[in-house]
């Protein structure tokens, strides 16, 4: 089982990072990534954070944004390899210049969402910027295309 999952990650990694329109084209997700990183929140698109940010996120999963998400290292490593292989190529620093941990604080995210009013974010069906699927129903399939966006009232 471990062997197949490592092989799967290698295969996907070999396909290489998406070349153009970093966050626009659909980026199908490895089912093992969705299984491990999509139980508490939608499985966030790997290209939302740069490799250095992913390494920082994986450095402490036992206090992951206030929740224990610990994974044993043998299970975590192939997932980290996978997200790093599909990461954003441009750095995603936070305000302090260190790699950002929150995708929703990354500059590209803020820029892409600058038309969304503060009151819209607070709608009960949205509640938080990390609730991607509220407005991007195909988020779990890795698609954030403009024409798929449905902002709930």
């Amino acid at each position: 089982m471990k062997l197949t999952s490592v092989a799967g990650v290698l295969l996907l990694a070999a396909a290489g990072p998406v070349l153009a329109g970093e966050h626009r084209k659909a980026q199908p997700l490895d089912p093992r990534y969705v299984e491990e990183c999509g139980s508490c929140h939608v499985a966030f698109p790997p290209r939302g954070l740069a490799a250095a940010s992913w390494t920082a996120v994986f450095a402490d999963l036992s206090t992951h944004f206030g929740v224990d998400a610990s994974l044993d290292p043998a299970a975590a490593q192939p997932l980290l390899d996978y997200v790093r292989a599909h990461a954003r190529r441009k750095d995603t620093p936070g305000d302090d210049g260190k790699p950002a941990l929150r995708m929703t604080k990354a500059r590209w995210f803020v820029r892409e969402h600058d038309e969304v009013a503060a009151a819209t974010w607070q709608r009960p069906a949205i509640e938080t910027p990390s609730n991607c699927a509220a407005c991007h129903p195909a988020a779990e399939q890795g698609s954030f295309a403009e024409h798929d966006i449905r902002i709930p009232r």
Partner: peptide, 9 residues
């Protein structure tokens, strides 16, 4: 419903 993220469980 997840207490932090709101995701359905």
């Amino acid at each position: 419903k997840h207490a932090v993220t709101g995701k359905t469980i």
